[in-house]
Design a protein around this nucleic acid. Structure first.
Lengths: 114, 114
DNA sequence: GAAACGATTGCATTGAGATGCAATCGTTTG
DNA sequence: CAAACGATTGCATCTCAATGCAATCGTTTC
């Protein structure tokens, strides 16, 4: 059994849900918009800034909330959304470390020549 | 115009193609399998190790190659695939940095109370 | 309490991608 | 050259998710 250590981490960090969430163009646009705005944004504000219907924005934000990339806070009749990157930042760095551990380029390339 | 610096990086690193590629369960399984194996793997080997048809493996590997996560080398009649994480590792770390720059939790949370 | 407003949900439509089988291509080996 | 083998591609099918509109829900305001 070769290199089991890094792979277990890989399996943990390659959870498809998060990547599927941020892999959608509309949701990526929402994340960028949230990052560009200063202060939390309402669904209506985000829908106005992008060529996406309000209902669609609402659904996309729900997905982003479920994977923990966006946080929401109810304020009267509106819901203010903001980026919540803490977990994602950690996960990305852990994944980068795990990948690096799995891809020792020099050893691997040497083995290729056999 | 608020915080334009980090957002331009975000837009660059949030390119949906890569995340869509690794966001598919079958492709994630392929990546994990490639990481677990020692040495490059052929399409047939990968298909044998996973409950995925050879033709499907071939197509998935093509997607992974196109986003530069997997490298292939022709060896006679077989094609040997291996992880090629260099660019991905860089991208993940850059994205993590950009996100962190966009999400100063303290300042942001203070602003929320307004 | 009624109207207004922001957000969510139901529903139907649509399009993209995943899958499996069979046929084909390219290379090697007899 | 023919058979064998690994890989890819064509094709048909199918599932899932994205989208837009309309209706509904929850909160606020008059």
């Amino acid at each position: 059994m070769p290199r089991p250590r890094c792979c277990r981490s890989l399996a943990r960090f390659l959870e498809p849900d998060t990547f599927k969430a941020i892999g959608d163009p509309s949701r990526a646009a929402l994340l960028i918009q949230l990052a560009a705005a200063d202060g939390p944004q309402t669904v209506t504000q985000l829908a106005a800034a992008l060529p996406i219907d309000v209902s669609v924005v609402s659904r996309h934000l729900k997905v982003l909330r479920e994977v923990g990339v966006v946080a929401a806070e109810r304020r009267g009749k509106e819901t203010r959304h903001r980026l919540d990157c803490g977990d994602l930042v950690h996960m990305l760095r852990d994944l980068a470390d795990a990948l690096e551990a799995c891809c020792p380029p020099t050893l691997q390339n040497l083995e290729d020549r056999s």
